[in-house]
Design a protein around this nucleic acid. Structure first.
Length: 491
RNA sequence: AGCGGGGUAGAGCAGCCAGGAGUGCUCGUCGGGCUCAUAACCCGAAGGUCGAAAGUUCAAAUCUUUCCCCCGCUACCA
């Protein structure tokens, strides 16, 4: 069986999950479940980046230890991933000394062995408040824009990675799509960045500056590994790198990394360069999604408009939230969230189109002798199914769901036109055959997007859940029994 | 400033690469049909100088040029 390895970005866990994480988890999960229903064996890695300085700062603010903060928040993220239906195979915490650490050491040493990590004195403008370096032009009147203090000139010796060495190779790989960056606008963005010239970047910081938090550089305890080097490595250690070579052999390389637009450089430039250096295969694709805005504005703490997805899931069905996030997210555009828009989607589409279709047909089908349900195929859904497949292979989930809705609307229209409530005998059987088979196919198609709704439709039809290969008209063999409404109106 | 993406009915989009009557989709508005279905479903109508100007062409939303406006990226920002 073909394998498919997919990852979500690894969030740093300095705070609880927000709606952006929800979007990422749902998109990754929809791709994963699609591949499963298309017949592949799927492995999904997600996890928590715990070695970030941001976590140290967050813990200080709360007056708890960094480890305690990580334990607490990683648990929240894991719980959230489960609640939103992320079908992950592994939740890898970067602080895990047994599962993660050996792989990172191995990765680091492989880069060292290839001559790509060297020591260099680094001098920069460092703001103690931000615990970050600034470049001259980022400063406002020579002061830190955040704290309005004069940054110190800090000089220390760090390890650097020879990114510059890989410039030509990266251009070749990305241009030729052997490392495919999707959508194309992002690919162009990366290419223009790489072509503008790559500089080596530091892959460690002094333990002092790292507040002694993080993974130590092998053979040099005075330095901590740069969090990116470590966090990206989760994609490898998630499938056994450095501890289970058979597992690793089976799953690597990743078929796709799902990431947000803010971290594209790390994934499309640094990461492939690191892998090239270590002599490992590159991921095949990088899927870049945009952000979630709230009522047209960026989510931010200062605006106080951050939406807590956990709370949202207490008030709305998980499948409705999943549907909404996909429905509002073409890959090239921010998705805008508002509760009014969510309700409109629920009432206007999930209730009025999908749930209503199932309800109106099941009511009639339940009263009809199943033996008489047969007849010629009148609803032509093949081309829709093909389009859904094509869209999904291209990661165009937005396009796929549009196409699925075209089928739902077509069946609703078919029912209006054929008037099954007036029909009898063979005529009724034929209409029901078409409608029920179409609904079965719809249940198959929505499986990746709304898994539990799909299951409930199969249940009402009285058939077993089915893979994508069954998404074509055949004999209807279910025992229809109307169940509870799939969705209730939100207002 | 440079590079990239975008500006199409009240809103959100598709159409552009391979020019052929402003064609289409979803929502909203108005009118009608239906009564199986959760006031759900179906049909019809109104509504656009396709950001602006110039050019190429028998013909431009589509190709070329210029301009205006919006967004993203421009190095260690997990």
């Amino acid at each position: 069986m073909d394998k498919f390895y997919i990852t979500t970005a690894i969030p740093y866990v300095n705070a609880k999950p927000h709606l952006g994480h929800a979007l990422e988890f749902v998109q990754a999960d929809v791709i994963a479940r699609y591949q499963k229903t298309a017949g592949k064996e799927v492995f999904l890695t997600t996890g928590a980046d715990e070695n970030s300085l941001k976590n140290v700062q967050a813990a200080e603010k709360l007056g708890i230890s960094t480890q305690e903060l990580c334990n607490r928040n990683s648990e929240l993220f894991k719980k959230f991933a489960q609640t939103i239906g992320l079908s992950f195979s592994t939740f890898m915490r970067s602080s895990n000394p047994d599962l993660h650490l050996p792989g990172i050491k191995k990765l680091w040493n492989a880069c060292v062995k290839n001559g790509d990590i060297y020591k260099k004195r680094y001098k920069g403008l460092y703001c103690v408040g931000c615990e970050a370096f600034y470049t001259e032009d980022e400063l406002v009147d020579g002061l830190c824009p955040e704290h309005l203090t004069k940054p110190e000139v800090v000089e220390e010796e760090n390890y650097f990675f020879t990114l510059s060495k890989y410039q030509r190779k990266l251009i070749e790989l990305i241009e030729g799509d052997s490392l495919l960056v999707y959508p194309e606008s992002r690919k162009n963005e990366v290419l223009s960045f790489v072509k503008s010239g790559l500089k080596d970047f530091s892959v460690s910081r002094s333990s002092e500056r790292a507040k002694d938090w993080g993974l130590s550089v092998p053979e040099d305890a005075s330095q901590k590994i740069y969090v990116w080097f470590d966090a990206l490595g989760i994609y490898l250690t998630g499938v056994g790198f450095g501890r289970d070579e058979n597992l690793f052999k089976k799953w690597w390389p990743a078929d796709v990394h799902v990431i947000g637009k803010g971290i594209i450089r790390f994934h499309a430039v640094y990461w492939p360069a690191m892998l090239l250096s270590a002599g490992l295969e590159l991921p095949r694709k990088i899927f870049v999604h945009d952000y979630v805005t709230v009522e047209g504005q960026k989510m931010s703490k200062s605006l106080g408009n951050a939406v807590d997805p956990m709370q949202l899931l207490e008030r709305y069905p998980v499948d409705a939230v999943r549907y909404f996030l996909i429905r509002e997210s073409p890959a090239w555009k921010d998705a805008d969230f508002s509760e009014a828009a969510l309700r409109a989607r629920i009432d206007g589409e999930l209730v009025a189109d999908l749930a209503n279709l199932v309800a109106r047909i099941l009511t009639i089908a339940e009263k009809t002798d199943v033996g008489s349900i047969s007849g010629a195929e009148e609803l032509l859904v093949h081309s829709n199914v093909d389009k859904v497949r094509k869209s999904m292979e291209d990661f165009d989930m937005y396009g796929a769901i549009n196409e699925i809705w075209a089928v739902i609307r077509m069946v609703n229209k078919y029912i209006n036109d054929t008037r099954p409530w007036e029909a009898k005998g063979a005529a009724l059987g034929k209409i029901l055959y078409n409608a029920l088979e179409a609904i079965r196919i719809i249940a198959i198609l929505i499986q990746p997007f709304m898994p539990s709704t799909s299951e409930r439709i199969f249940e009402q039809l009285g058939v077993q859940p089915q893979p994508l290969s069954e998404a074509r008209f055949k004999r209807f063999e279910g025992r229809p029994k109307r169940g509870k409404n799939l969705f209730e109106r939100a207002k």
